[in-house]
Design a protein around this nucleic acid. Structure first.
Length: 462
RNA sequence: GGUGGAGUGGCCGAGAGGAUAGGCAGCGGCCUGCAAAGCCGUCUACACGGGUUCGAGUCCCGUCUCCACCUCCA
């Protein structure tokens, strides 16, 4: 079965067929870095990271572009309030987004272009739209004429007549639903020269321009959060199509993350920061939590659910560690059911069920002493978790490598204590054995006896 | 007012006309010096009211509740 994806525009699941055979081009709406990222932003990035990994696993050369809208009203307002330049403000939070993505194993995009670096292309697009009668300049602003484009509303299913008052009414607008392509410069605000006067980009224009600059006039997938369908993506689509570009073939929208019945958002202030999350669970566990539910479903954040996810991850991790203790485990082939699940609109919940089934079979094999079967299961688990970016034995999550001198020293000390304990246990001196184990525990070292001898980990206290 | 989506067992979360999802937690058992892990077994479901059908979480109609978007948002 080939990959099927849900397409917002056609409201149906469609087979993915790339514009250019062997390659996949994806444009994802990234952040407007006006403040620190929260888990909703990261969820979005993670969903497309999983998509990209899956496409690559299927042999496609993936080009993923995630933009940064580095100028907008709020950035200007907040920067001014802090008495800092707008570009410093957005650059600072852009770095926070990038590091949050990286912390969760989200691989970098092919490029993360900034809106302000593409003003030349914006001017070109506006000129094309004006030439075709789809846009007009008025009092220094440039607007898109929504009534000139019949398909306006097709992506989101909005009927033009029913759309309520959009952006704040402006003097030069012909119709209150027309949206702003370019904003006239105001005193003290940054601006760039254009044939229609100095100003700065409106929202929407930057994405049309950056998508076509890097991916071409027609590309495979445009993604973003569900809250961007209208008006942002509707407007992008209108601009690009009206200008004559075929634009995205398929539109994907990820579900949002909520708290206490409301969506998490900067404006509501009910956000959970990434560093705060990473004090509760490890990065791989947070990633597991965010990608296990289907990407289109709404996640109602809760500590309990987060910890359950962490438990689930640890179960997989335990199994792999246990098996690896008996011999090297390398990533192997993916079970058919896993492949089918992923091809079915990235059905990660089913994919996770497959992983856990194989883990259980592998654990049973270990208990039965069937190491070959266990190793096979572990190989499959590494393969599956690898594609999802949560392989506990991967370099990314396995912890510091053997090159870490402090860790080596720690290992030597712990092993020495464990040897003493083993001697005590051998003569059934359990009082001494337990005292040694408790001493390690006090130092943060958790010891577990397994059929393969004692295993120790640095307890994370979670 | 318009548009889209959701209500599943203690919790999370799939599925979809005749079903062992999976995880976490609970209970019983095995294993274990203890602990942990693991294995086996097991209890709580499908918002409500009608209807279609031999048979409905699954289809149809109605009701209720919740969420998102139409203002910045991933």
């Amino acid at each position: 079965m080939a990959l099927q994806l849900y397409d917002t525009a056609s409201r149906s699941v469609r087979e993915f067929t790339p514009v250019r055979p062997g390659a996949a081009s994806i444009y994802v709406c990234g952040p407007t870095p006006q403040g620190p990222p929260h888990i909703g932003h990261v969820r979005s990035a993670l969903n497309y990271d999983v998509l990209a990994r899956w496409l690559e696993h299927n042999g496609l050369h993936v080009t993923l572009v995630r933009n940064v809208t580095d100028i907008d009203d709020k950035i200007l307002v907040k920067a001014a309030a802090e008495g800092r330049p707008w570009w410093e403000h957005s650059a600072r939070y852009e770095r926070e987004f990038e590091s949050a993505y990286a912390a969760l194993g989200c691989r970098p995009a092919a490029i993360s272009p900034r809106a302000t670096g593409h003003v030349t292309q914006m001017i070109e697009l506006m000129q094309r739209l004006i030439d075709k009668g789809h846009a007009y300049a008025a009092e220094g602003d440039v607007y898109f004429d929504v009534r000139s484009f019949d398909a306006y509303g097709s992506l989101s299913g909005q009927q033009l007549e029913e759309v309520q008052q959009g952006e704040s009414a402006a003097a030069g607008k012909r119709d209150h639903r027309d949206f702003t392509l370019w904003k006239c410069a105001k005193p003290g605000e940054p601006s760039w020269p254009t044939p229609w006067g100095a100003g700065r980009p409106g929202w929407h224009l930057e994405c049309s321009v950056m998508a076509s600059t890097y991916l071409g006039a027609e590309f495979d997938i445009h993604g973003g959060g569900l809250d961007l369908v209208f008006p942002h993506h509707e407007n992008e689509l209108a601009q690009s199509r009206a200008a004559g570009d075929p634009f995205a073939r398929l539109w994907m929208h990820n579900g949002l993350v909520g708290m206490a019945g409301e969506k998490m958002s900067k404006s509501l202030g009910n956000v959970v920061s990434i560093p705060a999350m990473l004090r509760k669970v490890r990065a791989a566990e947070l990633r597991y939590y965010l990608i296990q539910p289907h990407y289109r479903s709404f996640i109602e954040y809760s500590d309990e659910a987060l910890h359950e996810a962490a438990q689930g991850y640890r179960r997989i991790e335990e199994f792999l560690r246990r098996t690896a203790a008996r011999g090297e485990v390398t990533p192997g082939e993916l079970p058919r059911e896993f492949v089918d699940a992923m091809n079915d609109d990235l059905a990660t919940p089913k994919a996770f069920a497959v992983i856990h089934n194989v883990v259980r079979e592998g654990n049973a094999a270990l208990d039965a002493g069937d190491d070959d079967k266990a190793r096979q299961a572990a190989a499959a688990v590494r393969g599956m978790t690898g594609v999802l970016g949560i392989d506990p034995l991967s370099e990314l999550w396995a912890g510091t490598g053997a090159d870490d001198k402090a860790r080596q020293a720690l290992a030597a000390l712990v092993e020495a204590v464990l040897e003493d304990r083993a001697r005590a246990r051998a003569v059934k001196d359990y009082a001494t054995a337990d005292r040694l184990r408790d001493r390690l525990l006090q130092a943060g070292i958790l010891v577990k006896d397994t059929p393969d001898g004692p295993q120790w980990t640095v307890a994370d206290g979670r």
